[in-house]
Simulated scan of single mutants.
Amino acid sequence: MALTVEMKTRTLRTAFVGGGFMAAVHSRAARAAGATIAGVASSTAEGAERAATAIGADRSYASVDDLLAADVDVVHICTPNSTHAEFALAALAAGKHVVCEKPLATGLGQALLLADRAEAGSLVATVPFAYRFHPMVREARARVAAGRLGRILTIQGHYLQDWLSSSSDSDWRVDARLGGPSRAFADIGSHLVDLVEFVAGERITRLEAMTRTVHAEREGIANVATEDLAALLVELDGGAVGTLLVSQVAPGRKNSLVIELSGDLESLRFDQESPETVWLGRTDRSSVLHRDASTLSPDAARLSLVPSGHPMGYQDAFNAFVSDTYRAIAGEFPEGLPTFRDGARAVRLTEAVLASAAGGGWQDVSAEAVAVPA
Rank of each mutant, 00 (worst) to 15 (best):
53 T>W: 07
39 G>D: 08
56 G>A: 09
12 L>Q: 00
19 G>E: 13
46 E>A: 15
10 R>W: 00
44 T>K: 10
17 V>Q: 08
56 G>K: 11
24 A>R: 14
55 I>R: 02
17 V>D: 04
13 R>S: 10
14 T>H: 01
15 A>M: 11
55 I>S: 02
41 A>H: 05
57 A>G: 04
31 R>N: 00
41 A>N: 08
53 T>M: 07
15 A>F: 13
49 E>V: 13
66 D>V: 05
13 R>G: 05
66 D>E: 14
34 G>E: 05
48 A>R: 08
10 R>P: 04
16 F>H: 14
14 T>P: 00
31 R>S: 04
19 G>Y: 13
58 D>S: 14
38 A>P: 03
18 G>I: 11
39 G>R: 11
23 A>N: 03
17 V>K: 07
35 A>R: 01
10 R>D: 13
58 D>I: 03
68 L>A: 14
27 S>W: 00
46 E>G: 11
12 L>Y: 00
61 Y>E: 06
34 G>L: 04
41 A>S: 14
25 V>C: 08
24 A>F: 03
29 A>Y: 06
17 V>T: 04
48 A>W: 05
40 V>I: 15
35 A>P: 04
29 A>W: 03
21 F>P: 00
17 V>Y: 09
46 E>K: 08
40 V>Q: 09
44 T>W: 09
34 G>K: 08
38 A>N: 02
13 R>K: 15
36 T>K: 10
65 D>W: 03
35 A>S: 15
16 F>E: 05
9 T>Q: 14
23 A>W: 03
25 V>T: 11
63 S>P: 06
12 L>H: 02
65 D>P: 06
65 D>T: 13
56 G>Y: 12
34 G>C: 04
18 G>L: 11
36 T>G: 01
67 L>R: 13
37 I>G: 01
32 A>N: 10
26 H>G: 02
62 A>I: 07
34 G>N: 09
30 A>Y: 09
9 T>G: 04
33 A>Y: 03
63 S>I: 10
30 A>N: 03
42 S>N: 15
55 I>G: 01
22 M>V: 15
26 H>N: 12
55 I>Q: 01
35 A>W: 03
65 D>G: 06
43 S>N: 01
31 R>Y: 00
45 A>M: 01
38 A>V: 04
41 A>R: 05
33 A>C: 02
66 D>Y: 02
68 L>Y: 15
10 R>G: 13
26 H>W: 07
39 G>N: 09
9 T>C: 05
48 A>H: 02
48 A>P: 06
66 D>L: 09
22 M>H: 15
10 R>N: 08
12 L>W: 03
33 A>P: 02
49 E>A: 13
30 A>C: 13
57 A>M: 10
9 T>S: 07
67 L>Q: 11
26 H>M: 12
65 D>K: 12
